[in-house]
Design a protein around this nucleic acid. Sequence first.
RNA 1: GGUUUCAUAGCUCAGUUGGAUAGAGCAACUGCCUUCUAAGCAGUAGGUCAUUGGUUCGAAUCCAAUUGGAAUCACCA
Length: 637
Amino acid sequence: MSYIENKLQIAISQAIQFLYQIENIEIILQPTRKEFKGSHTFVTFNLAKNLQKNPELVGNEIGNYLLQNYADLVTGIQIVKGFLNFKIANKIWLQLFTDVQNKENFAQNPTKNMRVMVEYPSPNTNKPLHLGHLRNIFLGDSVSRILAADGYEVIKANLVNDRGIHICKSMLAYQKFGQNETPQSANIKGDHLIGKYYVAFEKHLRIELEPFMAKIDNKDFTDFSAEHQPKIKALTEQIEKFKDNRKEEKKYNDAKSGLKQIVQNYTPLMREAQEMLQKWEKNDENTKQLWTKMNGWVYEGFDETYKNLGVTFDKFYYESDTYLLGKNIVEEGLQKGVFYQKEDKSVWIDLVKEKLDHKLVLRGDGTSVYVTQDLGTADLKYKDFKIQKSVYVIGDEQEYHCQVLFKTLEKLERPYAKGLYHLSYGMIELPEGRMKSRDGNVIDADDMIVEMKKVAQLKCEEFGHIKDYSDVEKEKLYGQIGLGAVKYYLLKLDPKKKIIFKPEESVEFVGDAAPFIQYNHARTCSIMRKANELKIDFSANSYQNYEHLHEAEQNLLELLLSLPTQIAEAATAYSPAVLAQYSYEIAKSYSKFFTECSIFQAETEHAKSFRIALSSFTQKTLKKSLALLGIEAPQKM
RNA sequence: GGUUUCAUAGCUCAGUUGGAUAGAGCAACUGCCUUCUAAGCAGUAGGUCAUUGGUUCGAAUCCAAUUGGAAUCACCA
């Protein structure tokens, strides 16, 4: 809570106690809308109702009490219906401004003595990163920074999905068609090379699928096992039934993908992939060698991308190490009576009361399912770091899974269970539908960055503010602007909203966009360069007698002072969007100030010094709030 | 079918625990560069907050129903 808010609340309580003899009521203040005078507003409707008085009268009485008894705090009031607006003394604003400038670390909230792990983006190692991963990475990275600024100790963890049938698909395709190609020999990034073979696998799979599907079309089910035949028949009937029915398109698609799921396991390719997975699990030497080699290439590619994106991790977990974890927890759950066993030995948890149904936690043959290993990994994380909170940055398609996981851990009475949070975000789709790596219709992360850098270069050349920059400096700047634009575009939206990405028009460089914010940062730097050149004193003493803040100055100052509140709000909501909006508000506010108030031709020396000090602090605040989004702030652009 | 979630300007989105005349950006139109960076500033126009009902001093916000969209409901991960 801010200093002024606190003071005002005490003053208003005092007024209410004196005027109406009521004690201990909560005073809620809200920011004054900009079309009215003042900065803080107290709404009197509720109080007036309790007193059975006119809200406007109550506002008048309280307002006048403050004017008389707290003249050094409140210098003006305005009452509109039940809204009591306060104008706070100029001196207080200036004092706060001076205080915050002298503060060692103005953007660091006090420590909470709590450790939190943020897990992202946890990619599969069978394909390069795409735009969806970028949203995940930027969210995870920014939330980590925000939590750290709000006083948490943060551990950034990446749980790499490095094993499983999908990995074997790439491996198999490479083995069959790769001809010992390497990233060096093909001259492409390792992750892109592997992705190429993942797509190749799917392509060949589709070809192998055709004869099976043709037979099914002819109602010939003899290829399939006795167990599968009735299922296939039923699905075929459903497909027939919903075929030209637009309303049942969903069911049609469900049936189709269900059919494909069963049938594709009959193809030689899928059988080979399954065999490969079994070999891998039995530690077959050749398989492991190939796996190590190919994953190595992928990691090299990922590392390069992470570096280009400006993100780092504190801890890598690998699923190949963790996929067998969790079985001991199943045993424990059975003993505690949290789980139950069916006749076929499979183990389940009853989450019907939580509206999550019955859920399998271990197969009848004793092998793990998805949740099993996630239970184990959760324990491992706690064992490794003693974390009180844990944030999982995962797409909204896994909401149900996360609910099951968290609820299960709660029932197992894990000490960390209450601190689990699923930071869920909406999928990014293209105008023609969902991105699918296996079909190759994705916006590649590396391509995206290169594209945006090009756009940044074009704009920079157009404006021509950096003619004195060396080629290296220019390259760096293009990267900062291009990458900043993408990060801001993905972070300014509410995470839970789905994005339909239109390549031609999506990422903005003007208006509510990172370059505009960066541009205003560059402007503040330009002012500072000139102020230093002219050796102008803008220390606290130099503007102490500055009496009347211009409206633009006042608005900007109020915004700048709210940084700690904004950080706390963003951290509580796990929402970088709060800070994206805040950065934009500052940039807009500074831009207005910049055009309305002349700095070096200011009316008085006090005004000049104050405006330079204000520019200086705007620079720091913008830089910090952009940094919390993972966006760099150039000195010139 | 069950559960969850979403619907705000032509487009993309903000909108705090219910508060003042619902706000930005883009696109359109009008002004403003001899002066600190015009990636800008000022202005005009654009709204049945999906629909209906309820709760109350007051509803985009809370509740119910309806309509339309999305996700999910695998012994896949």
